[in-house]
Structure formats: C-alpha cells, structure tokens
Design a protein around this nucleic acid. Structure first.
Length: 365
RNA sequence: UGGGGUAUCGUCCAACGGCAGGACUCUGGUUUUUGGUACCAGCUACCUAGGUUCGAAUCCUAGUACCCCAG
C-alpha cells in the first residue's frame, strides 16, 4: 500500500514500488475539507484552492497518478481522527503556552497508526511513504533501524522518530536514497500531474499561515489571547503583547519593541501572562528535557551517550550527550550552548546516520 | 519663574553650509512537511514661523514642546 498525499514525492514512491515489481495500491487519507471525492470525478484542478495535504484536490491528484500507473486507489476518510489526533492537541498545546509540531502528530497517528491498521485489514505486507528516510535491519541487535536519507538536505527522518519496531518492520521508504531533483525528474518523465507541485509548507490545516486566528476560531476565546506585558529579564516593562499564543521561544519577528539590537522571546510566563524578551546572547541553552520518549531503533540508552541532536526539522544536528533520566524522560545536554528548544517541539537524537529516537521537549535548561 | 540643554523615520542615534544615513520596529520575499530562525529587499523623518546664503537639518531670531540645574 503506497500512502499518497497527492504530492510529487508519494507519486514517485508508488512508481518505484511498481517498478520493483510490487503489487501496489495507492491510498490517500482524506483529512479535511468538504466531500470525499467520488471515484471517476472530472478532471482535477477545476477552481480548486491551493491547499497541501489531505484536501480534495490532493485526493484527485493522487487518483490521477494511480490511474496513470494503472493501480487501484482508495481514499480513507480520516477527518474525525485528524481532528482528534492532530488539530485538537495542536490547539490545546498552544493554549497551554507550548509550541506543538502538528506534522509529527499527523505522521504518528495517521500516516502510521491509521494506515498500518488499514494495511492489516487489507492483508497487505507494507505501507510505503514518500519520506526521505531509510530503514535497515541490524543483524547484531536483531532490530530495525531508522536511518537518515542519503540526501541530507532533504532528510525527513526527524518526523519519524516515534515509529515502533512493529511499524518499521512493515514500512518502506523508496525515496530514501534519492535526491529531490531525481524524484522530480522521474515524475516529469512519467507525466504525473504532481511533478511540479510546490514543496509543502505551513500548517496544512491553516493555509493562510494565521495559526492563532485558526485556534481562536476553533476554540473560542481563551487567556492565551489576552494582552499582557512584554518585559526583559530584569522585569522592566518594554511594551505590550497581543496574547502569548502568538509567540514561541526564540521568536524575533512580531515583538514590536525597538531596541539597539533585535529582541527575541526568551520565555513565556503563562501564569503571569508575560512575554520575556532578551538579546541574542540571552538565548543560550545548555540542554533540553524530553518526555514521551521513543527509541525507534531499539537501542536502550545506557548511561551517558554521545549523540547528535535536532530540536528543529531543519537544524543541522549538533553534538550532545543524551541520558535516560526517568522511565519516560530523556535529558540531552549540548556540547556547546544552543538556541533553546521550544517546549512542545520534537527532540530527536542521532548516532551518525542512525536515528536513535526522540521525544517532546518539556523544558530547557 | 531665573540659568543651561535638546528638538531628525514608528523608536534610538548620525549627517565640514552642498542629493538626510544607520540600527531596531514594521512590511514583503527567499528557505522550509510545524511554530520559529537565518538570509534578501522595501516603506516611513529634518518641531513651527521668519531671516542670512547660490544653497540651511546645520548659522541667526522668535515661538512651541520636552529635559536638567536652581526652587
């Protein structure tokens, strides 16, 4: 079963499986939007909104690619699950002052849990996705390992740290050894309608980028939208903010306070509804504590382990020491001070090309 | 009120009498399957009224506002 988002990567994913001689069927998750498109509907693209990920337009595109490949295509209505597993937690996290990563939740609960469930129901062997990542069987440990993509510029293993051994055993990542250029070239060669679709960006269910407005519309009024003071580390009032929901740790734009140098958010004081800001040199962090930990490649962490860590999707991994500090708690100490991670973000640790695992940042130090 | 000082983008500061420049904010763009970051670009100002001068942000006079010291 090839998970097809309606983008170029998953289109090529299906193509490569077919080329490899697999018996492929495409599957698209309908995550939001109005109607589930009816099979055989007219040509795609007629006055559709440009919307990434799970919209009716994407379902049409995925279906068109499957038709071209001559493989069956199914659309699964996962809208209510998307709401419960992604949107709701996303809003709750923001309202509590954290900075969630909805793409991680979506991968975890929909692309993997829900699609694997479908796979079992259909009696199929694998779910394949268009992620730029690789897996490898480790003879020594008798476990599957999750690896970074060969094209490190496009590597997406960061969003997969939560995979289980059982899921990994039934996953394929056909794009893990390719570059984006190669993938696009393949798509063009095969005349896929998705060949030149832009890279997805922004939160798929908030296409205009106004996530705060979305949360307000979804959850109604809340204290996270209340105006409050902007202060520096010494407690001096520098201005007023328009609700803590608009800010995240490390943020520079949108503070609205002019100073000799740029100011960054160094802390969100939810209890006092105050935004604490400081200069760049006040944005130093020695490490981060993560919960909801998953060690995807199976290795337990014995004592202190030298690793590389990312606290953001597009960060280059930095050297650090990771240590299990509780039954479900991981403490990562950077070798050199870093920009702080925002609570709610994913902390992912690597040993070279192997993804060891990760968790959700709960606090920094 | 007596003496002194300062008035320039939204903010903070520059500019020998010769096209008003920078930092920050803001806006836009690039990058990006999250928020952010980073990078690039752009907008906006000489307190008012006179005078001197070929030419005034700059020199002079008056007004206005603010600051400091005297109270």
């Amino acid at each position: 079963m090839a998970a097809m988002s309606g983008g170029v990567d998953s289109s090529v994913c299906a193509l490569l499986l077919q080329r490899a001689g697999c018996d492929v069927r495409g599957a698209t998750m309908v995550l939001r939007d109005a109607a589930v498109p009816v099979a055989g509907a007219g040509p795609h693209g007629a006055a559709c909104d440009v919307a990434p990920c799970g919209s009716s337009r994407d379902v049409e595109d995925a279906r068109a690619v499957c038709r071209r490949l001559g493989i069956p295509h199914d659309a699964f209505d996962l809208r209510s699950r998307f709401d419960a597993a992604v949107i709701r937690p996303f809003c709750d996290a923001y309202l509590a002052g954290r900075t969630p990563n909805p793409c991680i939740d979506c991968n975890r609960h929909l692309k993997f849990e829900a699609l694997q469930q479908r796979r079992r129901e259909l009696g199929l062997q694998y779910v394949a996705t268009g992620h730029y990542a690789r897996r490898r069987w480790n003879e020594a440990s008798g476990r599957w390992q999750l690896l970074r993509a060969l094209d490190t510029a496009k590597d997406q293993s960061y969003v997969l740290y939560h995979l289980t051994q059982d899921t990994l055993a039934h996953m394929l990542f056909p794009l893990g050894g390719l570059t984006k250029d190669e993938v696009r070239a393949l798509a063009r060669d095969h005349g896929f309608v998705t060949a030149d679709k832009p890279e997805s960006q922004d939160i798929c269910f908030v296409p205009d980028g106004d996530y705060a407005g979305f949360i307000e519309g979804y959850c109604g009024d809340a204290s996270a939208f209340a105006a409050g003071e902007i202060v520096n580390r010494e407690g001096r009032v520098l201005g007023e903010h328009g609700g803590l929901v608009h800010y995240t740790i490390g943020q520079r734009k949108g503070i609205g306070v002019a100073a000799s140098e740029p100011l960054y958010v160094v802390e969100k004081d939810v209890a006092a509804n105050r935004l604490v800001v400081g200069f760049k040199d006040e944005l130093e962090s020695r490490g981060v504590v993560a919960r909801d930990v998953n060690l995807v490649s199976g290795d337990a962490l014995d004592g202190r382990r030298h690793v590389q860590v990312k606290t953001h999707y597009r960060q280059r991994p930095v050297d650090a020491v990771a240590q299990q500090t509780g039954p479900d708690e991981l403490t990562v100490t950077f070798d050199e001070p870093q920009r702080p991670a925002a609570p709610g973000q994913a902390v992912v640790i690597y040993d070279g090309e192997v993804v060891l695992g990760g968790g959700t940042a709960v606090r920094t130090f």
